[in-house]
């Protein structure tokens, strides 16, 4: 079984938002909403500063609270790669998932369902990368099978220091940031 995830190199990321724009056009994300976003985390006092730049999105958690809290089963884990998805037809837009997500990764689509990153499952099923990965001008994003020890993502996680976002939430995020 494959377990899809992403590894993002914060050393290379310049926070240009190309990932956000590519997601928007690829997936026709409506005006006023985005499925991914950029965080610039600054620590220190001028001029002794450190900044980490992260491209963030749904973490496609191994223990996804948005799935366990969904009253209709619309939020579900896809058979392929453990990707967390929303079945639009079954969603009653009760917003329980929005409240449960520690990453604020979801929004209610104007058409009336909870929406978020799908890891571009429509592309992945065809053997392509998510749109954000393929557009990145700095090549800072990697997509692949975390269960395969020989995949690029697995190798990167073995060789580089990394972290996930809010690990204390216990959701087991599958988006990893190289430091």
């Amino acid at each position: 079984m494959a377990r899809f995830g992403m590894v993002i190199d914060t050393k290379k990321c310049v926070g240009c938002m190309d990932c956000v724009v590519a997601c928007k056009t690829e997936n026709n994300v409506p005006e006023g909403f985005n499925r991914d976003w950029i965080v610039q985390e600054v620590i220190g006092k001028y001029p002794d500063l450190h900044m980490e730049i992260r491209s963030e999105r749904c973490n496609h958690c191994d223990n996804p609270p948005c799935v366990s809290c969904c009253p209709t089963g619309a939020s579900h884990v896809h058979d392929l790669g453990g990707v967390v998805l929303v079945n639009h037809k079954e969603c009653i837009s009760c917003k329980a998932c929005l409240a449960s997500c520690p990453y604020d990764a979801r929004f209610i689509h104007p058409d009336g369902y909870a929406d978020k990153c799908t890891l571009c499952i429509h592309r992945v099923e065809k053997g392509m990368n998510p749109a954000c990965v393929d557009v990145c001008p700095t090549h800072c994003m990697y997509f692949g099978d975390l269960d395969d020890p020989n995949s690029e993502v697995s190798k990167l996680l073995k060789s580089r220091k990394h972290h996930t976002n809010i690990p204390a939430a216990g959701t087991k995020p599958q988006i990893f940031y190289l430091m």
Partner: peptide, 11 residues
């Protein structure tokens, strides 16, 4: 093969 965010937003 990789445009910048402005080019990607050209639509």
């Amino acid at each position: 093969g990789r445009l910048c965010p402005r080019g990607t937003g050209g639509v």
